[in-house]
Design a protein around this nucleic acid. Structure first.
Lengths: 154, 154
DNA sequence: GCTTGACTTCAAGTTGACTTGAAGTAGTAG
DNA sequence: CTACTACTTCAAGTCAACTTGAAGTCAAGC
């Protein structure tokens, strides 16, 4: 059982962020001690997963969907699998980009836009990109942030 | 030689975005025909690189640094190499996340936060994360958007 | 030579993910 | 019991990366 500052210290996540995450339903406190939130240890791994999901380029809404709403542990395995596939494609692209950068760093061609190796690597990366057909347009998601939108009253 | 709508069509990038990219110095038009911008074909691969860079999680400012300011093709090879290394670490994390998702999708444990395999995968991912020590705090960059900041006058 | 419509500029709006600040409250140390 | 301080809420601010809208311009077709 942790209060917000202990959780903040242990997770290296600012308290304001923790409150925000609770507000949008990414984490939950197990109760209050007076006014103060009380968290339990299970939010630590959860916060780590959130950070990881963000690093993977998922929005908080997507991450919330992936993790489930804390007390609904049964999460959609097909969706998870789809996310994994999408992530894998993303990884392929990034790998191509990494190789491109790596090559550009060592290549002695006058301008690497003219270097055939670089061009080939980029073609590979871009071909993949075309394959996905703007899949990130669908990532915008239809709000569904539960509560929220209070900061726009007046 | 393309006008903005042709470029938009060929690149599948909205004209507003192209103007924005020009404004912030990511691309350049070769001139004007009357008021209208004229681009040459070299911006097409450049736009593709920009998209790729974004997919890799770089900010537009970082991408601009990586690509150079169009007429300064000599770009810093050490920096490129550092970016490649950073990207590679990122890829490792994403791979761990992908494996975690993949496993979660097929795992029959009651809740995969309790599944030992999942926990192990996450530990690996998180260990890596600790290694980087908040490197993304440095990614904020010191503005340096050249011109810009006009839309916030009053 | 006038209308049309795709371009232009510039300001302002939007979205996601937060942070900051003011004003209030409550467990704890003295 | 009072003070202190770390918490609380809520509104508003910020930042990147764009988009939207209003008002203007200009080459082309009729």
């Amino acid at each position: 059982m942790l209060d917000i500052s202990e959780l903040s210290r242990k997770s290296d996540v600012p308290a304001s962020k923790l409150r925000y995450y609770e507000e949008v339903g990414l984490i939950r406190s197990v109760g209050r001690k007076g006014l103060r939130r009380v968290f339990d240890d299970s939010v630590l791994p959860r916060l780590a997963l959130i950070a990881l999901g963000q690093a993977a380029g998922f929005s908080l809404a997507e991450i919330r969907d992936m993790l489930g709403e804390e007390r609904r542990p049964r999460i959609d395995r097909d969706m998870l699998s789809d996310k994994a596939d999408a992530l894998d494609r993303h990884i392929q692209e990034l790998s191509a980009l990494r190789d491109g950068l790596r090559h550009a760093a060592s290549c002695t061609a006058p301008s690497h836009l003219e270097c055939p190796t670089f061009q080939r690597l980029m073609r590979i990366a871009l071909a993949r990109q075309g394959t996905r057909e703007r899949s990130r347009d669908k990532a915008r998601m239809t709000g569904k942030t539960g509560e929220r939108r209070r900061g726009d009253g007046a």
